[in-house]
Design a protein around this nucleic acid. Structure first.
Ligand SMILES: Nc1ncnc2c1ncn2[C@H]1C[C@H](O)[C@@H](COP(=O)(O)OP(=O)(O)OP(=O)(O)O)O1
Ligand SMILES: [Mn+2]
Ligand SMILES: [Mn+2]
Length: 437
DNA sequence: CATTACGGGTTA
DNA sequence: TAACCCGTA
């Protein structure tokens, strides 16, 4: 499933930036009285007080966690403020957070190639900016280094809280460093400035990792949160990975990571060093085997893609338990509502970004009651996407009907839909000439 | 009865 | 290519 990419020969400076308790910060900017108090963002609230999707650091001290029920959060943290996600057409509306994410991306995309990796995080390739700084104004020539940069965590450095700033300053400025480390030091200063700029212009804090590839930068950004940054010199990598639990590595948090533990006894990323590339390929195939062999050594050549916008738009809703939709008449208005939201979002993408979506996809889940128990799933269906809410609704309905026929297979008249999702994909820029017509 | 999203590789 | 599956926020 993962694919191996060799590390580029020249060393890169890569940053991963992730917003702190993002949806909470978005709500706190709207309601400043919530700043500094235990807060969580909750989706719906009828069933056990709704489910938490973002939790402030003040609330985390009480043991409040994502996916907890609102009621449960209140038990462990009676003073917690629960803010509800906006609702439109009977479903959660995440546009407020999408827009806030875009604000941040625009600020972070100014110093090098930027990849929007999720609603609240980006990867940056700062190699060019770091090289430029190293040749024009290297750290040791600066009169003053930002406090924010001096607060960085440098992996492999003694961490004495009293004199940490001094150690970091020495590391940033040391003249005997190799070229790689000097570039990283420049990256640290650039990222500190970017984070200060984000805070100043949006009021949001974020955390960041700076390293020579995406994998290590991502790992580092999560090591010290909130409002901190961590740099990974090459010399620190072996020790870092030696003790890193296998499931903490990106892409190993699921079945592959479990299989490594269960079938090979691998509990840390470093344990993978005990296996030859051929052995890993034998177990997991050529691509995945080589990928595993590489990550054990901190090698990952994935490029930062220059992409500031999502590649698809989707909207969905689940209908658990008794809420399952059991008739065509009850499915239709929900599907129409989802299509309406999707239509608005792709229309706005067209106007703001001059991009057109070309494929409409319908996903559903459901059950049927019949004599011969079957495990057939509701099939996904797709078709060319025609713009206009009514057309999208019409096409999505056709996709649903055809999926339902296949799903039921003439075997049952009693059924229920427990999940509906429509999405728009294959989004391409409108050719510049066609904008003139 | 976590929910509502995205990206990316595999399968047929 | 469409549909499916996995991993993650
Ligand atoms: N499982 C989920 N379901 C729905 N929304 C989610 C889920 N995970 C994350 N989100 C949303 C809410 C988060 O504020 C936002 C960013 O996720 P993430 O970066 O993992 O956590 P976070 O920003 O809330 O806290 P942290 O400070 O630990 O990064 O995405
Ligand atoms: Mn975050
Ligand atoms: Mn995140």
């Amino acid at each position: 499933m993962p694919v191996a990419r060799p590390e580029p020969l020249a060393s890169r400076v890569i940053a991963h930036v992730d917003m702190d308790c993002f949806y909470v910060q978005v709500e706190q900017r709207k309601r400043p009285e919530l700043k500094g108090v235990p807060t969580a963002v909750v989706q719906y609230n009828s069933w056990k007080g709704g489910a938490l999707i973002a939790v402030s650091y003040e609330a985390r001290k009480f043991g409040v966690q994502r996916s907890m029920r609102g009621d449960e959060a209140k038990k462990v943290c009676p003073d917690i403020q629960l803010v509800q996600v906006p609702v439109a057409r009977g479903k959660a509306d995440l546009n407020l957070y999408r827009d806030a994410g875009s604000e941040v991306v625009s600020l972070l995309a100014t110093k090098g190639r930027c990849e929007r990796a999720s609603i609240d995080e980006v990867y940056l390739d700062l190699t060019g900016a770091a090289e430029q700084m190293l040749s024009a104004t290297p750290p040791d020539t600066l009169e003053e280094i930002d406090e924010e940069a001096l607060k960085s965590h440098v992996l492999g450095l003694p961490n004495d809280p009293c004199s940490q700033g001094e150690y970091v300053k020495q590391w940033l400025c040391r003249s005997d460093a190799d070229h790689q480390d000097k570039l990283l030091a420049c990256g640290v200063i650039i990222v500190a400035q970017l984070r200060m700029d984000v805070l100043k212009k949006t009021s949001f804090t974020c955390s960041a990792g700076i390293a020579h590839n995406k994998m290590l930068a991502k790992l580092a950004s999560g090591m010290h949160k909130p409002a901190q940054q961590t740099v990974v010199p090459s010399s620190s990598v072996t020790e870092l990975l030696a003790s890193l639990p296998i499931n903490k590595m990106k892409q190993l948090g699921g079945k592959l990571g479990s299989s490594l533990q269960r079938d090979l006894g691998v509990t840390t990323v470093g344990n993978l060093l005990d296996f030859t590339e051929e052995k890993l390929q034998e177990y997991y195939g050529r691509n995945t085997g080589t990928w595993l062999w590489n990550i054990a050594r901190g090698i990952s050549g994935d490029e930062v893609e220059g992409r500031l916008l999502p590649k698809s738009h989707g909207c969905g809703k689940t209908f658990p338990g008794q809420q399952a939709l059991r008739t065509l008449t009850s499915v239709k208005p929900w599907l129409n509502g989802l299509c309406e939201e999707l239509s608005e979002r792709i229309q706005s993408d067209l106007e703001k970004n001059k991009r057109v979506a070309h494929t409409l996809i319908l996903h559903a889940e459901g059950f049927k009651v019949c004599e011969v128990p079957t495990n057939r799933k509701f099939p996904s269906k797709s078709c060319p996407l025609r713009y206009g809410t009514a057309k999208i609704q019409e096409d999505a309905w056709k996709l649903f009907e055809s999926g339902l026929r296949e799903f039921l297979d003439l075997q049952s008249n009693e059924w229920g839909i427990t999940s509906l999702t429509v999405s728009a994909s294959k989004i391409l820029p409108v050719p510049a000439v066609s904008l003139l017509i």
